[in-house]
């Protein structure tokens, strides 16, 4: 990289990649570790094809379960995809993956921590060339809104999962266990994450130029804008609740613990 970037001829010759004196590398390092942990965990769970259902709770990775191979009771009826032999999660889990991969916040996170482009502000990146999101595959990030729409559908399903978590294992309403609380919390966090999305902000009102002519959409936009300032927080919180919700189901389904029932 010697002749490009901060070492380019004409620029002040300073010789070091950064003069920052603070511990700028902590944030990208933590992000890297957290995201890596998440990917490893999710990969394991998605491919494992077991311990994803513990009546009345279903793991977020496996919902909606649409293959005929789904554990009885966990799926949509008896399932309608019969030709799929692998883990049913693979048919649906790509949606949240695409949603988060194209999310404006996660893009910042992985560009900084995985691609080091840049690792932190005013710290030189290690690449000789940089073309941004102008070519395949990264240009697909511009289609984030489609992932967002799908993500919304998925939220509806997961919300339904949370609702039916108020039934007990016999299918009677009026149950509530720790699992119910976790699924509800997860659904709420996913909604907060999705609603605070930048594409959402654009769709509800951001794209209009004359707010004054669309008072209702302006109000919605104002609301979403407020949520949007916390989008990063919701991204992390919902990431944690997803793991938590799945892990709890895993613990139940694998028989390691039993559900703490309130009523």
């Amino acid at each position: 990289m010697a002749t490009t970037g901060i070492e380019s001829p004409g620029r002040a010759q300073i010789g070091v990649k950064t003069l920052r004196t603070d511990r700028w590398w902590i944030a990208p390092l933590l992000t890297f570790l957290a995201l890596t942990a998440f990917v490893v965990y999710s990969g394991w769970r998605v491919f494992s094809n077991q311990y994803y259902f513990a009546e009345p709770y279903i793991s977020v990775y496996y919902s909606p379960c649409i293959t005929t191979t789904c554990v009885p009771g966990s799926g949509f009826g008896d399932g309608f995809v019969s030709w799929w032999a692998l883990s049913p999660a693979l048919l649906t889990a790509w949606i949240p993956l695409a949603f988060r991969f194209t999310c404006y916040y996660y893009r910042k996170a992985y560009f900084r921590s995985f691609w080091l482009s840049p690792p932190a502000c005013a710290v030189a990146e290690p690449h000789g060339k940089y073309t941004g999101e102008r070519r395949l595959p990264l240009i697909l990030n511009n289609g984030h809104r489609y992932a967002f729409y799908l993500g919304l559908l998925l939220n509806v399903v997961l919300t339904w999962d949370a609702i039916i978590a108020f039934r007990n294992s016999e299918g009677q309403w009026g149950h509530m266990g720790l699992g119910t609380v976790i699924l509800v919390a997860n659904a709420v966090c996913l909604w907060m994450y999705s609603l605070s999305c930048h594409s959402c902000r654009n769709a509800v009102g951001g794209r209009i130029t004359h707010f004054s002519k669309h008072p209702l959409r302006y109000r919605m936009w104002t609301l979403i804008s407020k949520l949007n300032t916390r989008h990063m927080q919701w991204a992390w919180i919902s990431l944690c609740t997803v793991v938590l919700a799945d892990f709890y189901v895993y613990l139940l389904a694998s028989g390691r613990i039993s559900d703490l029932t309130f009523f």
Binding site: Y104, R107, K108, F111, R112, S117, P118, C121, A122, Y130, T131, G132, E133, R134, L138, I139
Partner: peptide
């Protein structure tokens, strides 16, 4: 103006 170069890493906002 190369809008696609921006990978929304937000350093501009920071400074």
């Amino acid at each position: 103006h190369g809008l696609g170069y921006c990978n929304i890493t937000k350093c501009c906002t920071d400074v």
